[in-house]
């Protein structure tokens, strides 16, 4: 059953509406899982996840014991025009939480979202990466809430769980506000902006059903899931461009590299020459790789999870 959780009148003949789909199981369980996505309008990976969860639950309501709330577009205007931020306001909705009930329009929207999510037993905030780098499926948790969140994070069938990662788990985010309210909230991230990688999506969906099974909300079978590598910031090597030009990767995303491997080049199309060879300084898994070719000095090219090899 779809419900409006926030609605306001826009200037010209339209309402801004944030919706959720509440799917109740046939069992008597009272647990509630919330799956939210679309805070950033250029991130579409969560669309497939929402669709597939809703489809499977509608097909098998007898296997659901509890309630799943699906919020596919918290920033509907941004999603409509693939704008990461709130259109016109040009602000990141994920820096406006917990919002303000008597504040500006989007502060009220943020407060309404928090109000609706309050009381859930668990919340998953699904993100894609931005349009600049591609990510393998991962859960990001802040150290502050790690003890509470790690047991859930391990169940989600992602490749890694990254503890204390920066912006996405910061204060003013939805996840931080919900965790402060006592609703365990995990940030899931995968893929690249404005695209859907259904392989990654399926991997995480299996993880979500696995999690629901552990919570006692799902009576159906779940595929075997993997255990993620748990990493901290200290184990992640950031590789940035030292020059300005066009980045041409020499490796595939989600590959293991040895120290000294060439990861790519930054080249000058005008002069036809290589400006910088990008070499791995540590061995490990390339879990982030740049997709967007133009780079300035300081642009993120790759992240390597160190001390991880194929075996």
């Amino acid at each position: 059953m779809t419900e409006e959780i926030f609605s306001i009148e826009m200037p010209v003949g339209e309402r801004l509406i944030i919706r959720k789909n509440r799917i109740k199981g046939e069992g008597t369980g009272e647990k509630r899982l919330a799956v939210v996505t679309g805070i950033h309008g250029d991130e579409f990976e969560g669309q497939y996840i929402c669709y597939e969860i809703a489809r499977r639950l509608h097909e098998n309501p007898e296997l659901l014991d509890g309630t799943v709330d699906i919020y596919p577009a918290l920033n509907p205007l941004g999603m409509d025009i693939a704008d990461r931020n709130i259109p016109k306001l040009n602000m990141d909705l994920n820096r406006m939480f917990p919002g303000k009930e008597n504040g500006t329009t989007m502060e009220r929207a943020a407060a309404a979202i928090i109000g609706d999510l309050a009381g859930a037993d668990l919340c998953l905030d699904v993100h894609a990466s931005d349009i600049f780098v591609k990510e393998i499926p991962q859960v990001r948790v802040s150290e502050e809430f790690a003890e509470k969140l790690l047991p859930y994070a391990r169940l989600l069938n992602t490749d890694i769980v990254w503890m204390n990662a920066t912006a996405t788990v910061h204060e003013s985010t939805l996840a931080h506000s919900m965790n402060m309210l006592g609703v365990p909230t995990l940030v899931v991230e995968m893929g690249v902006g404005t695209r859907i990688d259904r392989g990654y999506g399926k991997q995480v969906i299996d993880g979500i059903f696995n999690l629901m099974k552990e919570l006692g909300m799902w009576r159906g079978e779940v595929p075997k899931t993997q255990f993620p590598v748990i990493s901290t910031d200290g184990e992640v090597e950031f590789i940035r461009s030292h020059t300005t030009g066009v980045f041409l990767p020499a490796i595939e995303h989600n590959h293991y590299v040895k120290k000294g491997s060439r990861l790519g080049s930054v080249v000058s199309p005008l002069e036809g020459k290589v400006l910088e060879e990008i070499i791995a300084e540590k061995s490990g898994l390339v879990f982030t790789l740049r997709e967007y070719p133009f780079v300035y000095e300081g642009a993120l090219l790759a992240r390597i999870l160190m001390e991880v090899d194929k075996n």
């Binding site: 040009n90 600049f132 967007y292 300035y296 000095e297 300081g298 642009a299 993120l300």
Partner: peptide
């Protein structure tokens, strides 16, 4: 804002000489 990433430089202080362009 700054660049194709649309970063607000006034949200990057005190900055980071090893960070992304706006932080630098």
């Amino acid at each position: 804002f700054w660049g194709v990433e649309g970063v607000d430089i006034n949200r990057r202080f005190p900055g980071n000489s090893y960070g992304e362009t706006a932080a630098r």
